[in-house]
Amino acid sequence: MSTPLLQVRDLHKFYGDRLGCGDVNFDLYPGEVLGIVGESGSGKSTLLNCLAGHLAPERGQVLFDTRDQGLVDTLTMSEPRRRLLARTDWAFVHQHARDGLRMNVSAGGNVGERLMAVGDRHYGNIRAQAIDWLDRVEITADRVDDRPSAFSGGMQQRLQIARNLVTGPRLVFMDEPTGGLDVSVQARLLDLLRGLVREMGLSAIIVTHDLAVVRLLADRLMVMKSGHVVESGLTDQVLDDPQHAYTQLLVSSVLQV
């Protein structure tokens, strides 16, 4: 077995007295897609933001297999180092595209930003890569100079994905990537994501309350309730043969999630 890309140990995050998430332990292997499901308020986003370095947990470790030093706890590493990881090895796809895009910068500039952040200083090369990535997320080259505000919700989300994947990150965090989109737009985005995940062999952690999303994308699942992981396993296993009573409710759609 290869080294895990990410090892999470005993992670706890509190908001004052209130538990955001607690006792979280798991490993993520290279090329694996992990789904995190659970009803609203169960701690999914809190967990994801702790993993991605956006929130500081009170306790625990988030060990990431860095290129130069192997497993390093990202919670205790220096901020410059963590920010460098965030713009090279990691990617974060926000639920609301406007949180993940620069609305006053063209689509090409949005995709090119990460390339420039890691030192690309050749305009022609940056632009060519931007156009290539727009194409991969089904945005035509003639929109490269348009601002995201001129795009539909689905296009904005696809642009956000292109902007994140252009530097070939090793780990992608996604928070409800299909949330807030029309059903037909969701289906197209899911299709696209599935293609990219397979083609690039992406390692990803996807938070969603939509079981259809994880059915399609995730190899493994963690089910969260009140900040805790109540069940985890292979996606098909968990969805077809749920063991925990809460998961059974979730799967039978009795719970309005």
């Binding site: 713009r87 620069r102 910068v105 063209s106 090409g108 500039g109 090119g112 930003e113 990460r114 420039m116 952040a117 890691v118 030192g119 200083r121 305009y123 940056i126 632009r127 490269v144 100079d145």
Partner: peptide, 13 residues
């Protein structure tokens, strides 16, 4: 990197 995004936008436009 953002400084170059501004210059990129200049050239694009």
């Amino acid at each position: 990197g953002l400084m170059h995004v501004k210059l990129y936008e200049d050239i694009a436009r």
